[in-house]
């Protein structure tokens, strides 16, 4: 843990929290948790109306990704997910007023567990795959997909796309054009998606980063679904493809569901909760989409390093993951083509 940022006025924060909670809030300790380039998390030990509680305050750093949602939107998403029965840290109070701590923030209840992807996959692999945990992931994502437009509280998501595949392809091509590096292999994958596009389904709320490493786990059980800043209306199979794509199996390729369990258990859990059966062919279609999207993101991360704005060996090495992803894209696109021929 790092010491908390000294610039935050804890007295001011306690006063605001007291007003929001409708009960006196006293902050005893505050400590910075894991933080990234995008946001920071601060653990708060408090009493609220005399009752001891542990909260987490989440706020933006100055440099934020243009493609991700802000904290106010994330708070609204957490509220919607919590109401839909998704395992999330209970959202408590959101604040858009920059004068309190210098940036918008929200406060949620602290959840126990760890979100280390490699450790989760290793643990599951050691027991020959954790079918129960895979099924639980299926149930959680099915609950998220119960959130459907129109939703006034999620207005910042904009209009749902009439055709999620066409919207995805256009978005990826736009990002490739913006990055400026020609990538024939990714173009090939996108063109194959365009040629094999399935009929559109009614849009649902897609988390868009639902993968091993983004679910907090404690003793092999999900305690919270994290990282909601890429959520958008889309095809439910987008999330299923992202979770099961080879690139998010953390080295446990034989465990198709996120490197933690079998595909059947994951989709079975989904179907039991959703009341409908996902289409495995459509999941494979979106695994290709997931691989293309991760390649585009990885290339953008390297570009952040190369621009000189954020020199980082981690970002630089992420760029060298792109060829492997391209190789995977070619294999998947070929299989998709063969399957339909």
């Amino acid at each position: 843990m790092h010491p908390a940022e000294p610039l935050m006025d804890m007295g001011r924060l306690a006063a605001w929290l007291s007003e929001a909670a409708g009960a006196p809030v006293v902050i005893f300790t505050h400590a910075r948790l894991s933080g990234g380039a995008i946001q920071q998390n601060i653990a708060l030990s408090v009493t609220c109306g005399g009752v001891a509680e542990t909260w987490v305050l989440r706020t933006d750093n100055a440099a934020t990704l243009a493609v991700s949602l802000g904290r106010g939107a994330e708070f609204a998403l957490l509220q919607a997910a919590h109401a839909a029965g998704v395992m999330v840290a209970e959202p408590l109070f959101g604040c858009e007023d920059r004068s309190v701590i210098g940036a918008p923030f929200f406060v949620m209840r602290r959840v126990s567990g760890s979100a280390a992807g490699h450790a989760a996959a290793k643990r599951a692999a050691a027991m020959g795959g954790d079918a129960a945990l895979a099924a639980e992931h299926g149930r959680q994502i099915a609950r998220i997909h119960r959130i459907r437009p129109p939703r006034a509280d999620l207005g910042f998501l904009g209009e749902p796309p009439a055709d999620a595949t066409a919207a995805f392809i256009a978005r990826m091509r736009g990002r490739l054009d913006e990055a400026g590096t020609p990538r024939p292999a990714l173009e090939y994958g996108l063109r194959m998606m365009e040629r094999q596009a399935p009929a559109p389904l009614p849009a649902v709320l897609c988390h868009n980063d639902f993968r091993t490493g983004n679910t907090m786990q404690d003793a092999g059980r999900i305690t919270a679904v994290l990282d909601w800043e890429f959520a958008a209306w889309g095809d439910p199979h987008e999330d299923l493809g992202w979770f099961t794509a080879r690139c998010w199996r953390f080295g446990q390729n034989h465990l198709e569901a996120g490197g933690i369990g079998p595909m059947e258990a994951f989709l079975g859990g989904y179907a039991a909760e959703a009341g409908w059966q996902p289409d495995p062919g459509r999941v494979r279609f979106w695994q290709l989409g997931a691989t293309i999207r991760w390649a585009v993101i990885a290339a953008d991360q390297a570009a952040r390093h190369l621009s000189g704005q954020e020199p980082s060996l981690e970002l630089a090495l992420t760029g060298h993951m792109v060829p492997e992803l391209e190789w995977d894209v070619l294999n998947q696109a070929e299989a998709l083509h063969a399957g339909k021929a």
Binding site: Y188, P323, L330
Partner: peptide
């Protein structure tokens, strides 16, 4: 087309990650 793309991808992988 596909063989050509594979050849290019192989060339890039040979540097970035030959194990793949």
């Amino acid at each position: 087309l596909l063989p050509r793309l594979r050849e290019r991808a192989r060339e890039r992988l040979a540097v970035s990650n030959p194990r793949a």
